[in-house]
């Protein structure tokens, strides 16, 4: 649905986006991560036909954003970072206005669509209130409803939960997940924990380039290299260290005392699973085992690792 090829954007001597390439498939929810100034907003603005690119190509739904921007704008719903709305309008008036400028000129169809998005975004209670009097959470919902009013195939959301409290953020993501119409979604955020729950794929940007792209789980795997197990045992420390280190596939071992128990962190080679051998060792030595758990790296670890790595280059 979205194909970005060698996209470059310069503002004077500053390069905001540099030779950026990626694709987003139909129905995918993809998160664009990056620190401030990484080029996320610039990229999304180019995709939404708001800014021109300095070089490269972008096609959305088969239409070029530079030469056929009107066709692109018809199929894209764009939520800008600041959630700009007309504060003097009532919610229903704002949605009517947005529906009109998005090409829904039939009164009946407009009413149906507005009714649908008001229900989908839970705006029934505030539909006759002035936009300027709403809380941030409701304003985000109004902006999302305005995005959805013409049933766009693609949603481009720039920092959609910025400024919301945790409860409002949770509601927003639930809303996005529960949309009945299947959308292709490209969103930017710097809240990594949310991306892990919502996005099927993550693109990490740094200094205008994509430095990592995969599912959140796979990315988390890459940062730890292999696998890390947390094993809690009641056993003599030295003997346990010796026996665990002897297991084939174990590459590292550390121990933390926890009262009468010890917590061993076992690093293993990528692809090897030593849980069975650990269990057998415990049984053979007549030790007590209260937990054996796989520990994965977090997306935050990945983010820090890849941005530091690319910063050193």
């Amino acid at each position: 649905m979205i194909k970005v090829t060698h996209l470059t954007k310069r503002f004077g001597k500053t390069t905001a986006v540099s030779d950026l390439s990626f694709e987003v498939g139909k129905g995918e929810i993809v998160g664009l991560l990056g620190s401030n100034g990484a080029g996320k907003t610039t990229t999304l603005r180019i995709l939404a036909c708001y800014l021109p690119a300095t070089g490269g190509n972008v096609t959305i739904g088969g239409h070029d954003v530079f030469t056929d921007s009107m066709a692109v704008r018809k199929i894209v719903g764009y939520l800008p970072e600041g959630v700009p709305l007309y504060p003097e309008m009532r919610v229903i008036e704002h949605l009517r206005f947005t529906a009109r400028i998005k090409g829904i000129h039939s009164r009946k169809e407009r009413s149906e669509r507005i009714h649908d998005v008001i229900s989908a975004c839970c705006l029934n209670d505030v539909e006759h209130r002035l936009v300027g009097q709403l809380s941030k959470g409701y304003r985000r919902r109004v902006a999302l409803a305005a995005c959805l009013v013409n049933k766009p195939e693609i949603l481009i959301l720039d920092e959609p939960t910025l400024g919301l409290d945790p409860a409002q953020r949770r509601q927003f993501w639930a809303l996005l997940r529960n949309l009945s119409h299947p959308h292709t979604v490209l969103l930017s955020t710097h809240l990594l924990s949310e991306v892990e729950n919502v996005c099927q794929r993550v693109l990490i940007m740094n200094k205008g380039r994509v430095v990592a792209s995969d599912s959140p789980r796979n990315l988390a795997g890459t940062v730890t290299g292999g696998r890390r197990l947390s094993v809690e045992l009641q056993a003599p420390r030295e003997a346990a260290m010796k026996q665990l280190r002897a297991i084939s596939g174990v590459t590292g071992l550390s121990c933390e005392p926890q009262g009468a128990w010890h917590k061993f962190l076992v690093e293993t080679q990528s692809g090897s699973d030593v849980r069975q051998q650990i269990f057998e060792t415990v049984v053979n030595n007549d030790w007590s085992l209260r937990e054996i758990r796989s520990e994965h790296g977090t997306l935050e670890d990945v983010f820090v690792a890849v941005t530091e790595e690319s910063g050193l280059e």
């Binding site: 009107m70 764009y78 800008p80 400028i101």
Partner: peptide, 14 residues
């Protein structure tokens, strides 16, 4: 100033 121009210019309107 308010950013609503971004909404207008990314809508299918000339």
């Amino acid at each position: 100033h308010t950013g609503t121009i971004e909404v207008l210019l990314t809508s299918p309107i000339d």
